[in-house]
Design a protein around this nucleic acid. Structure first.
Length: 649
RNA sequence: GCCUCAGUAGCUCAGACUGGUAGAGCAUCUGAUUUGUAAUCAGACGGCCGGGGGUUCGAAUCCCUCCUGGGGCUCCA
């Protein structure tokens, strides 16, 4: 007999030789929702045989670990179907990922129809409910089993070696090299869907074989799968490309080029309102503004380290009669030169230099997408020059600034990330291990002191130093960097930055903080559009008030209303055409004005307006003067919500 | 750059599989209508069907090629 410790479910005695699955069946019954078990802390299959005392905890399919196992198993199921339908296809690797899984095959490219057929075949195997059986073999046998698949052999060379054996998993006629664990049988994989295909290179190396990657999503329940599908639908509704077109925020023209959006009047309003807000804020925080050129000589970018470390991200050089020029991919080198354009005293520090600078980056043409990935970016950029002692205050001020901005813009789904260098991969970075470790520790202790929660991630640092990124979660559940605060210890040496200290000595210990709390105009407007579904707060709305007349008789009064709103600085448009008001409301809805004003005989007679908020709530008979002053307050206070109409019950 | 799906009127889309020479709604314009909170009626205008090449008596439709857009190309048994 052996003793199995089951946590809350107590301790049970079984005959030695019982499997994990049998214990779970005994304790939790058929519908336990478990897909595997954790035995003495190690994830195991249901078929794992228990022959000594141990602890056992079922892994539920809905848990993070459970979903990982489900998705991994679903990748195997995909490979089974693909190999059956395309006997020449060679499976390579197939890991679980967020929401699902993929599997890379060495095979001819496939299209939508094949994808559907593969999904159908997978469903057949689910109905057949093949057991997923673990088998262990010695090294020699494994190499014989997979002798037809050089990719698997290469994986063995790397991960298994030549001495020890490993495991395979078999379902029906299909066998795959794998460590496991897996679900006990294919019927657990019902809630999946193949989503797309793509290409990837073997080992992410463009010189190696090109592989077909097939993506799928997989969940533990119908509800899980449906919920994800709803999330995707919701994200489509919020897509900034769709809303951007409807609201005429920006356009992309073939003759101008890919990744080079043109800001249309409505988008330009968003952009300049954001910029005005940034300028006000930065003035309050003691920043000085400059404008620097969009291109500069090669020497500058060699000095900054961009050319050796960032050349792929830059536009190719331009040969001029006096040297080689590059479009700038970053503003920092120019700001460094502003700093060192005159002698600096310790009394001046910290010096904060800001600019809404336009930078140019050579993104691969296939990665460009709407406003989210572009080749010309307007950055809300600034550089702070300070001593190491001052870094803490400056970082704190910037975290505070980000918090204030996000509250005003209504963003809630975000968290801080301390982005560290990768000590295994040092050639990507400037500077030695000591300076990296000490500056990272400095930033870490600032965050800890502030008591703000943050996560750490290795390999996400900039090439010149560690950073604090503010990570934003999109409607699709994907995490994107929105704001950044970067500590740069390399610039002082490269640009010989210095100041005269209290002792009258030239001091070269100038630390630079790069910060961009509002990201780029392009990304920021894209996220803002997605977040508000185009229904921006009044101060940001391209059209703040849309006036609608009921009949021709109110044309004059409408003009009067327009004039008084305009004199208060409100962006207002009038529709005095002879269409019905129902039609006018419907038509103007797509431009998402914060408020519509309905003007009829009553309003004209009493100098009032009827307000219709964006959500359809109304408030009739409001005196015009009152509306104008209330609206003015709402705009100047940058209120998040439309407050001029009481919410309907 | 690579794979995949797509590109038809200003917008949203049908027609394509099975070749016979282009359609709808909205927008716009012109009339009529003067309207109280998500589409008033009628008429007109509008397209070298992304570009080029090929097959054919005949191509939006089939084939090739280029361009542009969407999705993906980070997750490593």
């Amino acid at each position: 007999m052996i003793t199995v410790e089951l946590g809350e479910d107590g301790t049970h005695e079984y005959a030695s030789g019982i499997t994990a699955g049998e214990v779970i069946l005994n304790v939790h019954g058929k519908r336990s929702g478990a897909v595997a078990a954790r035995i003495d802390g190690v994830e195991r299959d249901f078929s794992h045989v228990l022959d000594s005392d141990c602890s056992l905890e079922p892994i539920n399919g809905e848990s993070e670990e459970g979903l990982y196992i489900l998705r991994h198993s679903c990748a195997h199921l995909l490979a089974q179907a693909v190999v059956e339908m395309f006997p020449d296809a060679k499976p390579t690797i197939g890991p679980p990922i967020d929401h699902g899984f993929y599997y890379d095959f060495h095979m001819d490219p496939i299209g939508d129809e094949e994808l559907k057929a593969i999904e159908k075949k997978m469903n057949q195997h689910i109905r057949a409910n093949h057991a997923m059986i673990r088998e262990e073999y010695d090294n020699q046998t494994l190499r014989e089993m997979f002798s037809e698949n050089k990719f698997k052999i290469e994986i063995m060379d790397d991960k298994v070696g030549h001495d020890v054996g490993s495991s395979v998993y078999r379902q029906g006629d299909f066998v795959d090299l794998c460590r496991g664990p897996h679900v006990p049988s294919t019927s657990h994989l019902r809630w999946f869907k193949l989503t797309s295909t793509s290409t990837a290179y073997w080992r992410a190396d463009s010189k190696r074989e090109s592989l077909v990657r097939i993506y799928g999503m997989c969940y533990a329940s119908k509800e899980g799968l449906k919920q994800r599908q709803r999330q995707i639908q919701e994200a489509e509704k919020r897509d900034h490309k769709k809303i951007g077109k409807e609201m005429e925020l920006y356009m992309i023209n073939e003759m101008i080029g890919k990744g080079l959006p043109v800001w249309l009047p409505h988008g330009e309003i968003l952009k300049s309102e954001i910029e005005r807000y940034a300028v006000e804020t930065e003035e309050a925080y003691g920043y000085q503004r400059v404008t620097t050129p969009v291109l500069a000589k090669q020497e500058l970018f060699e000095c900054s380290g961009h050319l050796p470390h960032y050349a792929d991200g830059m536009y190719p050089p331009m040969e001029m009669d006096d040297g080689t020029y590059y479009l700038k991919a970053m503003n920092c080198p120019m700001h460094h030169l502003v700093f060192s354009s005159k002698k600096r005293s310790y009394r001046e520090l910290p010096i904060r230099i800001a600019e809404y600078g336009t930078v140019y980056r050579n993104e691969l043409s296939g990665t460009l997408a709407g406003l989210l990935r572009v080749r010309m970016l307007s950055m809300n950029d600034a550089h702070i020059y300070c001593t190491l002692d001052q870094v803490g205050d400056e970082v704190r001020a910037n975290v505070q600034m980000v918090n204030d901005y996000y509250r005003t813009f209504g963003f809630e789904n975000f968290h801080l990330r301390l982005s560290l260098w990768d000590p295994e991969n040092t050639e990507k970075y400037i500077g030695d291990a000591n300076i990296w470790e000490s500056t990272q520790e400095h930033l870490r202790s600032i965050l800890v002191d502030m008591g703000v929660p943050f996560v750490e991630e290795i390999g996400e640092a900039a090439f010149y130093g560690p950073k604090i990124d503010i990570q934003f979660t999109t409607a699709l559940g994907r995490e994107e960097s929105m704001s950044t605060i970067q500590l740069d210890f390399a610039a002082k040496d490269r640009f010989e930055l210095s100041y005269k200290d209290e002792n009258g000595e030239e001091n070269g210990e100038v630390f630079v903080i790069h910060r961009a709390p509002l990201s780029t105009h392009e990304r920021f407007v894209a996220f803002l559009t997605e977040h508000w579904i185009g229904n921006f707060p009044t101060w940001l709305s391209p059209i703040q008030v849309q006036v609608i007349t009921i009949s021709e008789k109110q044309i004059e009064y409408a003009a009067e209303v327009k004039t008084s709103l305009e004199s208060a600085g409100v962006r207002v448009k009038v529709d005095d055409s002879d269409a019905t008001i129902g039609k006018k409301i419907r038509m103007h809805r797509k431009m998402r004005p914060a408020y519509m004003l309905i003007l009829g005989e009553d309003e004209a007679a009493n100098q009032t307006v009827s307000i219709r908020a964006r959500n359809g709530d109304q408030c009739n008979g409001v005196p015009l003067d009152q509306f104008v002053s209330d609206l003015f307050a709402e705009i100047t206070n940058r209120e998040r919500d439309l407050g001029l109409v009481p919410a309907s019950e």
